[in-house]
């Protein structure tokens, strides 16, 4: 192995001797013209938070005005929209907390500490997904009205749909967790390159746990 150290060092020394730095690029960096991918992650989160807040404001405005001024509006609409808005607010709260954590990550701290912080942060996105799935049944109740209770067939169909969606949402809330990351249904939900950092973060968390352990 000592020989390999020598091979590594002598080869890289030769490479380093011929290594030239592009001063124009490093100057651009020091004038902050270059884009950082870590900063772009922050931008996506800020964008999501803004859209979420606008959505919640709109839903709350509608629910408030209908409940005060529209006497014949269905109670199912008001309750469903109100609960959806509440669940979205909780998800926004998690996102805001993540932003706080992102700003507190110090990239110059020891590798294991920093990576643990970053990967726990990325993996916590699972919480947002779990919470948002709880909205599912309320998308099947907001349009209910007296007509649902006046016809047994319509009532049976509606109640079945809501029951199925309730079961799915509770099941997903309980089962979307790190331990199931290799299951087929999990990979189907989190398919696509936008989920790659989340899936990789969960694998890295496992690696960190193993790496921290002194027995190998």
């Amino acid at each position: 192995m000592e020989d390999l150290k020598q091979i590594w060092q002598s080869y890289h020394q030769k490479l380093e001797d011929g290594l030239a730095i592009n001063k124009q690029q490093t100057e651009e960096i020091s004038t902050l013209k270059a884009q950082s991918f870590i900063n772009s992650m922050k931008s996506i989160k800020i964008f999501t938070i803004i859209i979420g807040i606008l959505w919640v404001l709109m839903v709350d405005y509608i629910v408030f005005h209908l409940s005060v001024y529209a006497f014949h509006v269905s109670i199912f609409f008001l309750v469903s929209a109100g609960i959806q808005s509440l669940i979205t607010k909780i998800a926004i709260g998690v996102y805001v907390y993540q932003m706080y954590l992102i700003y507190n990550v110090d990239i110059s701290h020891p590798i294991i500490k920093t990576q643990e912080q970053i990967t726990r942060l990325q993996a916590s996105t699972l919480w947002v997904t779990r919470i948002l799935f709880l909205q599912l049944p309320f998308w099947t109740t907001f349009y209910w009205g007296d007509y649902v209770f006046q016809n047994i067939s319509i009532f049976m169909v509606q109640i079945s749909i809501t029951a199925i969606f309730t079961y799915i949402s509770v099941w997903l809330f309980l089962n979307i967790k790190k331990e199931n990351k290799d299951k087929k249904w999990f990979l189907l939900i989190f398919k696509g390159k936008e989920w790659t950092p989340l899936l990789n973060a969960m694998k890295t968390l496992e690696q960190i746990e193993n790496f921290k352990a002194e027995k190998n």
Binding site: G18, L19, Q25
Partner: peptide, 8 residues
């Protein structure tokens, strides 16, 4: 001109 490092 966009590369940070370059080896001759």
């Amino acid at each position: 001109d966009k590369q940070v490092f370059h080896i001759q």
